[in-house]
């Protein structure tokens, strides 16, 4: 027997072994399902098939969605509904109570508003950088280059890393005695305490999240670029069209549907930023990199006085913002389908 045959048969038997328990469970489930089929008839079987999934959605998405609204209009510190008195719009009033919209410190719940402003700053900057860098990367990867597969996977690799791992990789580089400060001092500069300066902390929050997620958006744009017919470029080249003109007149308009998807998806993700930055900076220094989701998490779960009502009210507002963005996404997706 040749080696290839051996490995194939080995793999096949390993597969069989793994399939055994699955086969057994499915066989056992066959008995009640057959019985159910006899009772309710074939016509009603699809309901049985979609039931488990819908039950999960019902319990963990739909019910919570309504409960969230209830939480946001009740007060007290209890988790259970029976312990929570109705307070009307008090939670929202508390969140939105500001003497002046421009000055965050005049708000009663200034941590919320800092979260909002930080999130807005983050979203605007992060999404812009994300789009520019993923577009440039996609354009570069779409050229006739050597080892394209290798380069594509290099840019994609960080997407798979967990937010905690991403944050720790960069934290280790950015520490006071880290690699970057070693580099700066070797150039004759001084050490920079990146996590002590608010501006630097925000910069690295943006940088690290772009680093971690850029590959995902690059992939979507690359798929769009590869769908553009090469004939168009050949025709443009024959006409002697300049490269920049080709880019603005052919590439960008034809890439636009994918670009819109990227913009909306990047916005939806950026608004919900939490994991990487929470591990990287902990929201600090002070509240410089504390974002909306961290506010919800801290208010509801991580502070000594767990204020579920306030956290729920804040998440209803976040949900409203996301709803607008998601509707925009659906609108965009439909337009993409039509074109």
């Amino acid at each position: 027997m040749s080696t290839t045959e051996q490995t194939t048969s080995l793999r096949a038997s390993a597969g069989e072994l793994a399939a055994q328990p699955v086969w057994l469970i499915m066989r056992l489930l066959d008995i009640p399902m057959r019985f159910a089929q006899r009772v309710i008839g074939v016509k009603r079987m699809p309901y049985l098939f979609i039931l488990p999934n819908l039950a999960f959605f019902g319990i963990f998405v739909v019910i919570p969605l309504f409960v969230n609204l209830v939480y946001s209009v009740t007060g007290g510190t209890g988790l259970f509904m029976s312990q929570r008195p109705y307070v009307g719009d008090e939670q929202y009033g508390h969140l939105l109570n500001c003497d002046s919209i421009i000055d965050v410190s005049t708000c009663r719940e200034d941590r919320f508003w800092r979260g909002v402003y930080n999130t807005l700053t983050f979203v605007v900057l992060q999404v812009s950088f994300m789009i520019v860098f993923s577009l440039v990367t996609a354009l570069v990867l779409n050229r006739k280059i050597r080892a394209r597969g290798f380069f594509r996977s290099v840019f994609f690799f960080p997407v798979l890393l967990s937010p905690v791992v991403v944050a720790l990789i960069w934290k280790w580089i950015l520490l006071r005695d880290g690699l970057l400060n070693a580099f700066l001092t070797s150039l004759g500069g001084a050490k920079i305490l990146f996590f002590v300066s608010p501006a630097w902390a925000m910069f690295w929050a943006i940088f690290v999240s772009v680093w971690a997620h850029m590959g995902f958006f690059t992939l979507i744009l690359l798929a769009g670029l590869q769908a553009i017919s090469p004939d168009l470029y050949e025709a443009a080249e024959m006409d002697g069209t300049s490269k920049s003109r080709t880019f603005w007149r052919i590439t960008l308009p034809l890439l636009w549907p994918n670009m819109l998807v990227v913009i909306v998806l990047a916005l939806i993700r950026a608004v919900q930023i939490f994991d990487e930055v929470f591990v990287l900076t902990g929201g600090g220094p002070g509240t410089a990199t504390q974002f909306l989701v961290q506010y919800i998490y801290t208010t509801g779960f991580a502070s000594p006085t767990q204020n579920f009502g306030l956290a729920a009210a804040a998440s209803v507002l976040l949900g409203g913002a996301l709803l607008v963005l998601t509707l925009a996404q659906l609108f965009v997706a439909q337009r993409k389908e039509r074109t």
Binding site: F57, I63, V67, F80, G300, F308, A311, S315, L318
Partner: peptide
């Protein structure tokens, strides 16, 4: 309905899902 649930990430329903799980 299933498309609809796509719009509701865990960040939005953190508190009530915690209640359900509790």
């Amino acid at each position: 309905f299933i498309i609809g649930t796509l719009m509701i990430p865990i960040t939005v329903i953190l508190v009530p899902v915690f209640l359900v799980v509790t």
